[in-house]
Design a protein around this nucleic acid. Structure first.
Lengths: 235, 235
DNA sequence: TTATACGCAATTGCATACACTGAGCCATCT
DNA sequence: AGATGGCTCAGTGTATGCAATTGCGTATAA
């Protein structure tokens, strides 16, 4: 049963997801069923199914008889998303503080220290970003409530296509690390309410910083388009 | 452009949703594509699409090469769901307290008082349930954050197939009304933190009551079946 | 030049046909 | 008898064809 029994629609969906998160498919790009079908060597049917799923997940917007498009967030939507995400992560960490096992706490600390080391040694910013992502993920999963975890990660997914900007903002990393410091301290101190407030503020600030950064490079006045503004990603 | 331009897949999806919420389709029931197709007078294609969407929404569970099934919640899953919902509603009301317009507050109060009147006059419990649902909905929507609203309602949807039990629990209604009283007071007092705590406790308690009620009528020891008929459901 | 009407190509939504999987049933073997 | 293996068939996954709709270039008008 180790065979996941992946259907072709699943394969296509995962492939498209990767391309969205990897940046090959940027917000605003059109997804044409026929092209994707031939690109993946399947018929339009599984492609359609994959697109339907991604649309339901919010990664793609799709309207009847119109081409599917990689979801594009205007400033307002992104603000809302980060606000909601801040609340959800706050709720999660509130629970996590009393529910994380010792092993989970240690893993969290390990990641946090690896990130610190990355900063000290002026390491790869992409690696730092990955560590930050893992940090948040560990905290959220620490609440041991799959409904809340899934919901939170579902929201987080939607900003992911934009999040790779974060790393280029200068001076942000140090501040990020300080925030994480405060969060982890609150968790280890068992102060759930403080942990909630810290992560709420932190996530809101992250969103703010991302938006401000994007706004500086924006071309359209309401929409962002990652690849149009930034040089290149090493993926 | 008032025409919503509903595709057949949408129509089918809405129809299935209604049947799930209405109870004609109970958790655990199998959805066979071919039957649904002929019942709705369409081909399997739009039915498949509808099922895919509902699966992504969590209302039905679907595994490769197996029949789709109306989502069935075991005790643990339901507990998690209510816990998550409590957190989300808490987050929403926290924001709503400072964001609801006067008109929205008045509408909320009107609903609340209609519910009180329903209780005083020993009215239709179903109507009371609807009012309660509207009460929660108004509060959630009052936060004016569509991401948070959608997420919360998305979670609430998943317990909806079970929620029609609530009304039969004796003595619950009065307590429910008292809780709502406290919530609305906190909102009008502008005490966001109190409102959050009140609705958190309230929603958790609602879930508790529902689960306890179902547990009394259960035959299987982990799974619930609204219609009172438990069907075999090994994993 | 800008705006509007129109027609054709491209693309989606749906139907149908086919391929594959998995669960039961029965026969066969030990 | 119980286990094992193939057979059957209901049902899902995928491919393909066709009709309906869009949007986009072109022509025409203001």
């Amino acid at each position: 049963m180790t065979d996941q029994d992946l259907t072709q629609a699943d394969t296509v969906r995962l492939a498209i997801e990767r391309e969205i998160f990897g940046g090959q498919l940027a917000p605003g790009d059109a997804l044409e069923e026929g092209r994707l079908a031939s690109r993946f060597g399947v018929s339009r049917t599984p492609v359609r199914e994959a697109i339907t799923q991604l649309a339901q997940a919010g990664l793609i917007t799709k309207r009847a008889h119109k081409r599917a498009v990689v979801a594009q967030l205007d400033a307002g939507a992104m603000l809302e998303l980060f606000e909601a995400l801040a609340e959800l992560e706050g709720a999660a960490v509130f629970l996590s503080t009393s529910r994380m096992s010792e092993a989970e706490k240690r893993a969290l600390k390990d990641i946090h220290e690896a990130a610190a080391e990355n900063l000290r040694s002026d390491g790869d910013p992409n690696e730092y970003a990955d560590l930050g992502f893992a940090f948040h993920q560990l905290i959220v999963r620490g609440c041991h409530n799959t409904a809340l975890i899934d919901t939170t990660e579902w929201l987080a997914l939607r900003v992911l296509p934009y999040r790779r900007f974060q790393v280029v903002a200068p001076g942000r990393l140090q501040r990020n690390q300080t925030d994480h410091d405060a969060i982890i301290s609150a968790i280890f101190a068992g102060d759930a309410e403080a942990a909630r407030e810290e992560i709420r503020r932190h996530t809101l600030e992250q969103g703010d910083a991302l938006m401000r950064f994007i706004a500086l490079n924006k071309t359209s006045h309401a929409d962002f388009h990652p690849n149009g503004l930034i040089k290149e990603q090493p993926l």
